[in-house]
Design a protein around this nucleic acid. Structure first.
Length: 161
DNA sequence: GCCAACGTTGGC
DNA sequence: GCCAACGTTGGC
């Protein structure tokens, strides 16, 4: 079995926060609405059950990694793309009758006792390799290396929910 | 609210 | 296949 991998997923807390995920049944929800090929391909091709995910709040006063979730279901079609009433409706998918987008299910696991803000992350040399701190990096789903993960765990002190 | 960086679309 | 126009992301 391939070793566990680590990821970072962005979300806008005004739309869907880490607390919203915790409030879901079994603390689990489908991570839908991803409309970027690179991000989709990570989910479709590389996300495996058991992978660990940092949840990052973007577009907010203090952009930060706030929690940890686990992949509990691997990629399946994101059919919000087919529904004109949905925010992430995709006419091209609808025209084909088949969504070109996928989602995975993630389950909230831990909260960082000390959320790690983007500002702090930038200041830590060991984390300078993270895609998150690279100029112009807007990718909403990014791989995290084992070393980066360990460093963030050390600093963020996650505790079980 | 601004705007730089990036991704997608569509005419040619 | 090129690339200009347009839309989105997301920090500040």
């Amino acid at each position: 079995m391939a070793s566990k991998r680590y990821w970072l997923m962005k979300t806008e807390p005004d739309t869907f926060s880490f607390d919203d995920l915790i409030a879901c049944p079994d603390r689990t929800d489908g991570w839908d609405g991803i409309r970027n090929y690179q991000a989709r391909n990570f989910m479709r091709d590389e996300f495996k059950k058991g992978d660990q995910v940092f949840i990052y709040h973007s577009n907010t006063d203090l952009p930060s990694i706030v929690g940890i979730a686990e992949v509990v279901r691997e990629a399946y079609p994101d059919n919000t793309a087919l529904d004109p009433k949905e925010k992430y409706y995709d006419p091209k998918s609808a025209a084909k009758g088949e969504s070109r987008w996928v989602q995975v299910d993630v389950k909230a696991k831990k909260r960082l006792k000390k959320p790690m803000s983007l500002k702090e992350i930038r200041e830590i040399p060991q984390l300078s390799t993270m895609a998150l701190v690279k100029k112009g990096m807007r990718l909403s789903i990014q791989p995290v290396s084992k070393d980066e993960w360990s460093e963030l765990i050390k600093l963020g002190s996650p505790s079980p929910l």
